[in-house]
Amino acid sequence: MNLLVSKQEKEVPKKIDTFKLFDRLGIIFVTLGLGILFTILSSDFFTWSNIINIMRQTSVSAILAAGMTFVILTGGIDLSVGAIVALAGVFGVFLSLHVAAPIAIIGGILIGALAGFINGILTAKMKLPPIIVTLGSMTYLRGIAYIITGGYPLVLTAQSFKDLGSGFFVGIPVPIYITAIVFILSYIVLKYTTFGRNIYMIGGNEEASRLTGIKVESRLTWVYTISGLFAGLAGVILAGRLFTGQPNIGTGYELDAIAAVVLGGTSLAGGVGTIVGTLFGALFMGILSNGLTLLDVPYYWQLVIKGAVIVLAIYVDRIRRKNAKL
């Protein structure tokens, strides 16, 4: 009997480890599998120019997803990032017409951080539901972008601003370098800093975190500020790529960011997830869009498929949480 019990005790950890390993690495295999599928279906997919194109097109949504990871890890949500992209791009281009391009770029990024800070104050200090706060800010921030432009796109003329979104360095688009820096810094913060550990603890149990001395309100305010900062960065990059500041840009970007985060293994309930998983989740969404376009799938059918992927991601998260409790 003792030998039987001992054998069972040894086998249980192995099963748990196997599940955790698949949970962490599953999105990597799925993303690679999707790439292989499109390589078979389209001869234009697996080419150097198209791979670079995918990475460049994914850069904006990936940066948004990085910021969204911080928020969702705390059990929150940020529906305003698409509107912040529009506002930051419009504000940055507007400033570039009056001041030096570097100052305009910084201004666009900071306006995004300010919007995120306000979301954080309303959520953490005033205890308002994140979904309501960010839904409201999604509306008024886009309204501000329309006010700045009068409803018309602003044309970007500063070349250094354009280079931020469309320039190249050693044959690689600048946005790819910026995305890499964002994810490296995010990885270091989440894995090796007290702030990062606090985020996981808050997502796991906010009240227990408060009782252990963690300044929950301060941490949550910073989390939403980071999300706004990254959205502001994504906004000026997109403006540099399009050569314009458009108040209607960024619609639906928040859904792509959330899908990337959840597909990457971060739980909507908070406390579980990795920034590396988010990166592969964003790549999955980018590969999916690119592959469907190469296969001449109509845009409205692409929306249907993307929507199904988002629903599937939420379902997978539910199954993941259910298995984690077993």
Rank of each mutant, 00 (worst) to 15 (best):
T18Q: 14
T18N: 10
F19W: 05
F19A: 02
F19H: 04
F19C: 02
L21K: 10
L21G: 00
F22L: 11
F22I: 14
R24E: 11
L25C: 09
G26V: 08
G26S: 15
I27H: 00
I27Q: 04
I27L: 06
I27K: 04
I28K: 04
F29W: 09
V30C: 03
T31G: 01
T31E: 01
T31F: 07
G33K: 03
G33S: 06
G33L: 07
G33Y: 04
G33H: 06
G35N: 02
I36V: 15
I36C: 07
I36D: 06
L37I: 15
F38V: 03
T39E: 06
I40N: 03
L41R: 13
L41M: 12
D44A: 13
F45Q: 03
F45T: 07
T47P: 00
T47R: 09
W48N: 05
S49N: 15
N50L: 02
N50K: 00
I51K: 00
I52A: 05
N53Q: 02
N53S: 12
N53E: 05
I54T: 00
I54W: 00
M55K: 01
R56H: 11
Q57D: 14
Q57F: 07
T58C: 03
S59D: 05
V60E: 02
S61Q: 02
S61H: 07
S61R: 05
A62F: 09
A62K: 03
I63G: 06
L64I: 12
L64W: 11
L64G: 10
L64Q: 11
A65P: 08
A65I: 12
A66Q: 11
A66C: 15
A66P: 05
M68I: 10
M68S: 09
M68Y: 10
T69D: 04
F70M: 13
F70K: 08
F70D: 04
V71T: 04
I72K: 02
T74Y: 13
T74M: 13
G75R: 11
G76E: 06
G76H: 05
G76F: 04
I77N: 10
L79Y: 13
L79A: 13
S80N: 09
A83H: 10
I84Q: 08
I84G: 06
I84L: 13
A86T: 10
A86D: 09
A88W: 14
G89S: 11
G89H: 14
G89V: 13
V90W: 11
V90D: 11
V90A: 09
G92V: 08
G92A: 08
G92K: 08
G92L: 10
V93A: 13
V93T: 15
V93I: 11
